[in-house]
């Protein structure tokens, strides 16, 4: 194979890589970011885009980029990404305040999936 062909091949490859997701979003099959699993400050919390965007019909702009960055897990770096922060209306607490959605002070294990849930999501078999 000569150099020209390789060059051509790379171009086609990069176009298809870029076009694939674009076409998917155009056809509206996956319009959200799937499951986000936070592992800090504790393991672990599950945020389901499916529940919020599909089942509840919330738009992307409900949270992005006001409360959460588009890049996942960015918020984990914040010092106030804690239950205390949430109860002050930050992050998840913006909605989960007991009136708009269930209070972040209640139903802990509804979002917290624990080390067990984290390991399951990572495909790690639970140990002893």
């Amino acid at each position: 194979m000569d150099k020209k062909n390789i060059f051509l091949f790379l171009i086609i490859l990069s176009i298809s890589c870029l076009a694939g997701p674009l076409m998917l979003s155009a056809s509206d099959e996956v319009s959200h970011g799937g499951d986000i699993i936070y592992d800090k400050p504790v393991k672990a919390v599950l945020f389901s885009h499916k529940v919020h965007a599909e089942d509840l019909g919330m738009g992307c702009d409900s949270c992005h980029d006001g409360i959460f960055q588009m890049a996942s897990l960015t918020v984990q770096k914040e010092a106030d990404f804690t239950m205390e922060g949430l109860s002050k209306g930050k992050y998840c607490g913006a909605c989960h305040d007991g009136s708009m959605a269930f209070d972040s002070d209640s139903q802990c294990a509804r979002c917290h999936i624990g080390v067990k849930g984290y390991d399951r999501a990572q495909g790690i078999k639970s140990g002893e």
Partner: peptide, 12 residues
């Protein structure tokens, strides 16, 4: 920011 708050209410 537009949220359908009714759907989110799940307090008992």
């Amino acid at each position: 920011m537009k949220i359908n708050t009714e759907n989110l209410k799940e307090d008992m």
